[in-house]
Design a protein around this nucleic acid. Sequence first.
RNA 1: GCCGAGGUGGCGGAACAGGCAGACGCGUCGGUCUCAAAAACCGAUGUCCGCAAGGACGUGCGGGUUCGACUCCCGCUCUCGGCACCA
Length: 803
Amino acid sequence: MPQEIEPKWQQIWAERGVMKASDSSPKPKFYDLVMYPYPSGDLTVGHARNYVMGDVLARMKRMQGFEVLHPFGWDAFGLPAENAAMKRGNIHPETWTLGNIAKGKAELKMMGILYDWDREVTSCLPDYYRWTEWLFLLMYERGLAYRAMAPVNWCPVDKTVLANEQVINGRCWRHPDVEVEKRDLEQWFFKITDYADRLLADLALLDKWPNKVRVMQTNWIGRSEGAEVEFPVVGLEGEVVRIYTTRPDTLFGATFMVLAPEHPLVERITTEEHRARVREYVEKARKETEIERQSTERAKEGVATGGFAINPVNGEKIPIWVADYVLITYGTGAIMAVPAHDERDFEFARTYSLPIREVIAPDDGPSDTLREAYVGPGRLVNSGEFSGLDSATAIDRICEWLQAQGKGKRAVKYRLRDWLISRQRYWGCPIPIVYCSVDGIVPVPLDQLPVVLPKEYKPLADNPSFWKTTCPKCGEEARRETDTMDTFVDSSWYFLRYTDPHDATRPFDPELANHWMAVDQYTGGVEHAILHLLYSRFFTKVLHDAGLIEVSEPFMRLFNQGMVKRFGQVMSKSLGNGVSFDELVAAQGADAGRIYEMFIGPPEEDVEWTDAGLNGVSRFLQRVWRLVLEPEKIVVEGSGADASALSRKVAQTVGKVTEHFDELRFNTAVAALMELANTMQDYLQRGGERDERWVGAVRTLVKLLNPLAPHVAEEMWERLGEKGMLADASWPVYDAAVAAEPRLTLVVQVGGRVRDRLTVEPGLSEADALAAAMGSDKVRGALNGRGPSKVVYVKDRLINLVP
RNA sequence: GCCGAGGUGGCGGAACAGGCAGACGCGUCGGUCUCAAAAACCGAUGUCCGCAAGGACGUGCGGGUUCGACUCCCGCUCUCGGCACCA
C-alpha cells in the first residue's frame, strides 16, 4: 500500500471542495458538529477521537445524499494563553493562540479530517467577538444582563471570579487543589434563572441526549416546590422573617428558626445580651471556606440571637438562631426548623436541647421522633384544624390558608443561580459598557462595536488608553468596563455563527440559521454536560424569544465520547504519554489511525491506546488492499467456496454497518467490515471464482470502508475503475437501496399468544419461509410440546404451523 | 446519603423487542518463510475431563418467570460517574 496516497487525496479533496456546505442545496441538510476546542497546542490522537467520529459521520451522511454542514473553529479566548504568555516571557496571548491554531489545523488535515474551512470561526478575532458583544447588549436590552454586588467565587491563582458552574467541591475547576474564596464584588450576571423552568421542561424534548446529561442538568437546575411563609418578629413592628419550606405540612412542628450568618436581619434581631456572641459566630462563619462550611459530616453549630418570632399558624413564640448550616444563597436564607421531621434540624435541636414536636405520624406504625427525624409523608397530628389530613392534602390546605391570611404563598425555588460572566482578565471578549458619572451604566451603541481589545498585553484596568473614553450619551469623560467575559459566553453561540460566518452586519442571518439549525449531531466531552450545554441552551432560548431563530433547543442529538488513555492516564503532551498526529501518520498512516480510533472500544467509553492494537488495524487494511487489488496473490489452500454465503455476508454487512454508523457504534461497524474481509479471504482461499459476485463484494467493501479510511478507499476505488471493475468510478455513493432492504419478520404464535419473532431472509416464498421457520431452533423450541400454533407474517398473512 | 451507569475468556469488548454466549481485535501457543531473529502469512485458543469422538461447567451472588435467560422480574453485592447541610 503506497504511502503517498494520503497527500494526494487530501489535495484532491481540497481542490474539489468536498466538504463545502451549500446553503441552497436541494438535498436534505445534516448539521454535524463537534465541540470546538481550545487551541492549547497539545493536540494528540486522544483529542482526535472526537474529530474522527465527526468526520466519519460527515462522510457517511454525504454518501447517503445529505448536504452536510461540518464546520470547525476555535474557542480561542481564555486563561491558558495568558499563562503561557507569562511563562514564556514576551509572547502575546494572541501570537501564542494563533500559532497553535495554525498548527492544529495542519494536524487535522493530516488525518484526512475534512471541514468546511471557509466557515472557520475563531472566537478571539474581532469579526467574531464583535457579535459576542452585540449579543451581550441584546441580553442587556432584554433585562437579562445586570450588574450586582454579590458574594462571588474568587480563584486566588487565576485571580478572577468564577461562575458557580466552574466551582467543583469548593475548588476551582482549573485547579483541583485550589479552594475558591468568597468575595463581595460588583459583577455582571446573565439572568439564566429567568429560564430555569424552560431549561428544565425542555429537557423532555431532548430524547436523543444521554440520559446521564439530562439527569445532571435536572439536578443542577434543582427545582423544588413549596411555600414561602412569613414569621413576624417579636418586638420589631412590621418586621418578618421570610422562610422557604418544601414541607408546609410540618408548620405546626416548627419549634425554632434559623438564619444564615449572612442574613440581613441578624443584626437587628439580635438582643444586646447576645450581640457579642452572635458577632463572634458570624465572623467565624465568614472566615470558613466553602469546603468546611458545606461538609455534611461536621457537627451543627450555631448561636441564639435572643430574638423571637411568631409562628403564623398557631401564634406560638419561637426562638431565632443563627447557624451556618443554613445557606444564604438558597431560598430566603432563613428556615423554620422542624426537628421532628428534618434530619438537620433534629441534629441541631439535640445539640442545643431545643424542643422536638411530632406533627406527622407515619402511615405504617408509630415513629420515634426523639430518636430520629421522620422525614416521610404521613398523617398530621398536633396541627390544629389540619390534624388528621394526609401530608399531600395538608400541603394544599395550609398553602390556601396562608394565602388567604396573607401570611404566605406557594413558591418554587431553583438551585440554579444567575451566571456570573465578568472575568478580571485581559484575554477575553470586552464587555461593551461605559460608566459615566452623569448617566451611570451606558451600553456602547451598536454602531460603535466592536470594543476592540488593545494590542498591548496588560490588565485592562491598568491601560488608560483602553478605559479612558467618553460617554456615548452625554459626551463627558467616562470609564470603560475593564472586565472581560467568561469564555463560555463566546462558545454559547458559535454554532450559529457557522451558519453565516462572514456576515458583517449581524451575528447571523436568521434565514440561514433557520435553514441549518438545529444541530443534528453534536459530539464532545461529557465535561461540558452542565457548563457549555446549559449556557448554549439558554442563549438559544433567548435568541428564540428575540425572534432571531426558530428553534428553542440547539442540539437535537448529543453524544459524549470517552477519553483516550495511555499507560493508564489521559493522553497529554505534558504528561509525556501523548501520541502526536505526526507520529501516528508516520507509523501506520492516517487511515489505520482513524480506524483504530473507531475500533479501540465503545465510543462512549474511556479506552486504552496500545501500539499493538493499532498494528492489528493496520494488518486489516493491508489485507483489504490485497483482497481488492491483488486477489491473485491469495493462495488457494482449500476447496468448497460458497458464493451464496459470500453474497449473504455482503448484504448483511451493508445492513449492519449502516445501522452501526447511524447509532455511532463505530467499533462494531469496523468489526462487521473485518468479518466481511475475513469471509472474502476465506472465499478466495477455498478457490472461489472472481466473478460478478466477487466484484460486487469488493465494491461494497470499499464503499463501506470509505468514511473510515477515506484515503485508502478512494485510491482503491480509482484503481478498480482503471481495471474496468466499476461501471461508474465517480465518488462512491452509499447504496441506500441495499442498506434499506427490509428484513422479513415472522411472528410466532403459540396458543394465540405471541411467543417469538424470527427474522428470515428477504425474498423467500411462503413455503420457504415456513420451512426456514420450522427449521430454526427458535421456532422448534417455542412449539415444543404445544398444541396447534401458527406463524404469522407481520403484515397479517397467517401461515399455519403443525408442530 | 441521594441520583445515574455498569460487572461477560489472559485483555479490550460482541451478542440482548429471550433463541448456537464469547463476533471482531489484542495476547498466547503451533506452523510456513529464514543461517537466525523480527516482520509477514497460515492455523489453534472460555474452563475442566478425555488420545479421540464426546461430555460437564460457564456472562458478579441468591432466588423467580419460561420449552429456553448475559438479556425479563425480585433481593443482594461490588465498581465507576454525578450531586450532596438546597430546607
